[in-house]
Design a protein around this nucleic acid. Structure first.
Lengths: 127, 127
DNA sequence: TTGAGAGTCAACTAATTGGTTGATTATGTA
DNA sequence: TACATAATCAACCAATTAGTTGACTCTCAA
């Protein structure tokens, strides 16, 4: 009997957890911004930061766990590349709320919200 | 001499930290999804979850800290409403990477990446 | 072969997180 | 008034996080 296969991709929900968590740190966001301009070594990524190389290495591993960075080790060096695909899933999730900041919201939707608030207020007052 | 005024809005970087962190938990994302359909009380928000009301109350406070939820207390009850504005800032940050998943990436950009990988590979080989 | 460099692993610490239960505050209501 | 309800506060616990330093592996080069 073979052991249960390890799933190649985590459940989408868990993946979103990891992606958003990875984005919640300024060092990790800065790493992603630098990788957007091209592949870099761990030591090159670490140079601008005022923390140890080990700390940066672990930040990179958080990004790898989220699927946002790939590491290609070749000898001593480890070339880090961006993989923006998981960001797409996160953007899709956030798209649900795009209606709130798209053109027209300031006039129409905020007005509707204000009406809603006033309705709730009057509902409270007439008890 | 008056004390230094407390800034109304945190620095944008810190705000992104709080927003992405708030999104990194499935309970908090579910709360935002429910609030997208209308304002709800804390107890209404808590009902579907298998954790204590206190735990949900603290999740809501994480969302409030991120500016994603407003609470209007009126007597015993606390009406929670969605504020998607901070999500906009997060979406703007993520937009930098939209080029990777937009149409044409599969053919053009991945090809460029492959070229880049091959260049790096040959650079390594000829030492 | 010897040593320096790139990177990770391991152990430790302090702070934060996410959950719990119990007490407390404040407001409706019988 | 007395009691139930809505919600938060406070204390506690286990797990995780983000940083440190030190040891280790592996590779390149003198």
């Amino acid at each position: 009997m073979t052991p249960a296969p390890i799933p190649l991709h985590p459940a989408p929900e868990v993946a979103l957890d990891a992606v958003f968590f990875a984005l919640s740190d300024p060092v990790r966001r800065a790493i992603l911004e630098r990788l957007d301009e091209g592949a870099l070594l761990v030591s090159e990524l670490a140079a601008p930061f005022d923390i140890s190389l080990q700390a940066v290495s672990r930040h990179i591993q958080v990004l790898v766990r989220a699927g946002l960075v790939h590491q290609a080790r070749s000898g001593r060096i480890s070339r880090c590349t961006l993989d923006a695909a998981p960001l797409h899933d996160a953007a899709v999730w956030m798209n649900r709320y795009a209606k709130y900041w798209q053109a027209g919201f300031d006039t129409l939707a905020k007005h509707l919200l204000r009406l809603d608030d006033e309705r709730a207020q009057s509902k409270k007052d007439d008890r």
